[in-house]
């Protein structure tokens, strides 16, 4: 282990962190649920790769199963789940980590953002007490529109209807500002998948080249970014041409990603199929369309009007404990020998 925290201190950090998150969500009237971690169906994402377990997959998030429970009438609920993502490793990434994921029936992004603020505040103060450090505090939270923040952090304007050529020019321009030199790789030509690739590429390069330095200068300010480009909607509703999605950053690190949830099974199916087309372009295997999940959306009253969010527990505890990498706070250290 590289950090100063030994196994006992880490166990106390986790014990108090998990209890604090559970305590808050229960107080808010949510039921704790548990759903399968090994499953036939995962949400099809272009750049989140499931770990295979024979014919099955390990979950990359508990989203599909929790939404099936919501369709069944379970109501507002939460889960603290182990999730697995193939190939993710680094200071802020691990192939296995914990998501606290919760859904508020009739909730909005604003409700989820308020939850994140309270959970971050409570965990920072409880874990701070455990490790006997002055608790780290977020001085204030700001809410930014995605496009406004892009302009604020880069000095360049970006519009929701930007063309593929414009997006690629912005991505290449920002790519030259990356700390790690020139970026390679070319986007697909087919218009159906090009937009998804273009926005995903721009999001990544902007995050690293411009947003991260901007966040690093104001670590005491928490940031929610919302109203994403429609092509990055994933499983969120699109309203007025913008995805009702929110990303939250605490102490300069991305910790939570929430949606006002899409309930339309037809739209969801077509998004999954589009992602599969992009996966094939990227040389990845297409993933099976999650039929039972789509059937649950289509049956009866389907998914209730709701908003849901997933918060990275390991990252939040890392920030609260004042260490620099997930391996410094995970109870057993990194599960990998060479990171």
């Amino acid at each position: 282990m590289t950090s100063g925290y030994g196994p006992r201190a880490r166990a106390e950090i986790w014990d108090s962190g998990l209890a604090t998150i559970r305590g808050y969500l229960r107080e808010e009237g949510m039921l704790e649920v548990t759903t399968p971690w090994c499953t036939e169906e995962v949400a099809i994402e272009p750049y989140i790769e499931p770990v295979r377990a024979g014919d099955l997959c390990l979950i990359t998030s508990p989203e599909l199963w929790m939404k099936r429970l919501l369709c069944g009438g379970v109501g507002s609920s939460f889960q603290i789940a182990h999730v697995l993502r193939h190939g993710e490793r680094g200071r802020l990434h691990a192939p296995e980590f914990h998501l606290a994921e919760w859904y508020r029936v009739l909730g909005t992004l604003a409700d989820l953002q308020r939850d994140v603020e309270r959970v971050v505040d409570a965990v920072a103060s409880r874990v701070g007490a455990v490790v006997a450090e002055e608790p780290r505090r977020i001085e204030r939270w700001e809410r930014w529109d995605f496009f406004d923040l892009f302009e604020e952090s880069t000095g360049m304007a970006l519009f929701p209807d930007a063309s593929s050529a414009q997006l690629r020019a912005l991505t290449n321009g920002l790519g030259e500002q990356l700390s790690a030199g020139a970026i390679s790789g070319e986007g697909p030509a087919a218009p159906a998948v090009a937009a998804l690739w273009d926005w995903s590429a721009l999001l990544s390069v902007w995050s690293d080249a411009a947003l991260q330095p901007w966040l690093d200068k104001r670590r005491g300010v928490g940031v929610h970014v919302e109203d994403f480009p429609a092509d990055l909607a994933a499983l969120a509703v699109v309203r007025d041409g913008r995805a009702r999605r929110s990303e939250s950053y605490a102490f300069g690190v991305e910790i939570a990603n929430g949606y006002e949830e899409l309930g339309c099974h037809v739209e969801q199916k077509s998004r999954f199929e589009r992602v599969n087309a992009l996966r094939i372009h990227e040389g990845l295997a297409a993933l099976p369309v999650p039929r039972r999940f789509l059937a649950a959306l289509a049956a009866g009253e389907g998914l209730p009007d709701c908003a849901g969010i997933a918060l990275g527990v390991d990252r939040l505890l890392m920030l609260a404990a004042g260490v620099e990498s997930l391996a410094d706070v995970q109870l057993t250290g990194s599960c990998l020998a060479d990171t």
């Binding site: 993710e88 790690a180 995903s200 999001l203 990544s204 994933a234």
Partner: peptide
């Protein structure tokens, strides 16, 4: 040297020396 960065839903970037 190797560093992996990735926004939640974006492409991963593998920043290497």
């Amino acid at each position: 040297d190797f560093q992996f960065v990735k926004p939640g839903k974006g492409q991963g970037l593998y920043k290497c020396k």
